[in-house]
């Protein structure tokens, strides 16, 4: 159940309720680095106490990587748009749903997300490219859908994750 009103008409009326969700939270903000940082701080304040440090750390990192991708690629070459995040806590998982109105994923599907190789020479080291590999590593049931002009990404963080 989402009780918060959308911050702008660009925010999708995403459903936060997944199967067995006992507590849910919905937020909508511009897909920009400062707003992502503020949203993650808000999520931390609301959820960190309900999850183990390991599971919350996994959720926070996966969420940050997805949101950074929306900001950098989803809304590339257009004014920063809104992103809506729904979080729902069930007995065994944190259910995450992220919606935006940016470009579709290339090829209409999720990137394969292979972890970049570690180069032998310092000058050849990659300075990025870890995002989707981290998201795939940290989440369960990762799924992507393009629906009438918006992107819908869902995943689950098992509460037993991260140690």
């Amino acid at each position: 159940m989402c009780t918060e009103r959308p911050l702008s008409s660009l925010c999708d009326q995403a459903h936060c309720a997944a199967k067995g969700v006992v507590s849910a939270y919905r937020t909508c903000f511009p897909a920009e680095p400062w707003a992502i940082r503020a949203a993650l701080a808000d999520v931390r304040a609301r959820f960190a106490g309900n999850l183990s440090a390991g599971a919350f750390g996994a959720a926070e990192l996966a969420l940050a990587e997805v949101l950074n991708n929306v900001a950098e690629h989803g809304y590339a070459d257009m004014p920063p748009g809104a992103v809506t995040v729904c979080l729902g806590l069930s007995a065994d998982s944190l259910h995450v749903r992220i919606e935006d109105r940016g470009h579709p994923m290339p090829g209409g599907r999720l990137p394969s997300g292979l972890m970049p190789e570690v180069a032998h020479a310092v000058e050849d080291l990659a300075e990025g490219g870890w995002g989707w590999a981290l998201i795939r590593e940290l989440t369960a049931d990762l799924a992507y859908e393009r629906r009438t002009g918006h992107n819908l990404l869902t995943f689950r963080i098992p509460l037993a994750a991260g140690g």
Binding site: L61, E65, N68, V122, E123, L125, E127, G128, G129, W130
Partner: peptide, 20 residues
Amino acid sequence: DFIDSSGLGAIVAVMKFLAP
């Protein structure tokens, strides 16, 4: 207490400009 892949990339960039 938090670093994302952008932060990691920045640390790698620092390593690269300090080297050799």
